[in-house]
Simulated assay, not measured.
Amino acid sequence: MVSHSKNASPRADAQKNRIKIKQSAITIFKNKGLEATIEEIADHANVGVGTIYRNFGSKQELANLISYEVLNEIYKKQIEVIESDFPIEEKLYKIFDTFIYLSTEYGEIHQMVLQLLTSTIEPNPLKEDWQQKLHSLYHRLVALGQKEGIFSKENTLIQEKILINTVNPMMVKEVSAILPIEEAAVTLSKFVLNGLIIRK
Rank of each mutant, 00 (worst) to 15 (best):
Q23T: 12
Q23D: 13
S24V: 06
S24H: 03
A25M: 10
A25C: 09
A25T: 02
T27H: 14
I28G: 08
I28N: 06
I28W: 10
I28Y: 05
K30Q: 14
N31H: 12
N31G: 13
G33H: 03
G33A: 00
G33I: 07
L34H: 05
L34N: 03
E35M: 12
A36Q: 03
A36H: 09
A36P: 00
E39N: 14
E39M: 13
E40H: 09
I41A: 04
I41N: 07
A42G: 06
A42T: 04
N46L: 14
N46D: 15
V49Q: 12
G50V: 07
T51F: 08
T51G: 03
I52R: 07
R54F: 12
R54V: 10
R54Q: 10
N55F: 04
N55A: 11
F56T: 04
S58K: 06
S58I: 08
S58V: 06
S58F: 08
K59E: 01
Q60H: 14
E61V: 11
E61H: 12
L62M: 05
A63S: 09
N64S: 09
N64A: 11
L65P: 02
I66F: 01
S67Q: 06
L71T: 08
L71N: 03
N72Y: 13
N72H: 13
Y75S: 10
Y75H: 12
K77T: 12
K77H: 15
Q78Y: 05
Q78M: 10
I79M: 02
E80T: 14
V81W: 08
V81K: 06
E83G: 02
E83W: 02
E83H: 12
E83L: 01
S84P: 01
S84D: 00
P87G: 01
P87V: 09
I88A: 08
E89F: 10
E89W: 01
E90D: 13
E90V: 15
L92G: 05
L92D: 05
L92A: 01
Y93K: 10
K94R: 15
I95G: 01
F96K: 00
D97W: 10
Y101G: 01
S103W: 08
S103L: 11
S103A: 15
S103V: 05
T104D: 00
T104F: 07
T104V: 06
T104E: 04
T104R: 00
E105L: 01
E105I: 07
E105Y: 06
G107L: 03
G107Y: 00
E108K: 15
I109A: 00
I109D: 04
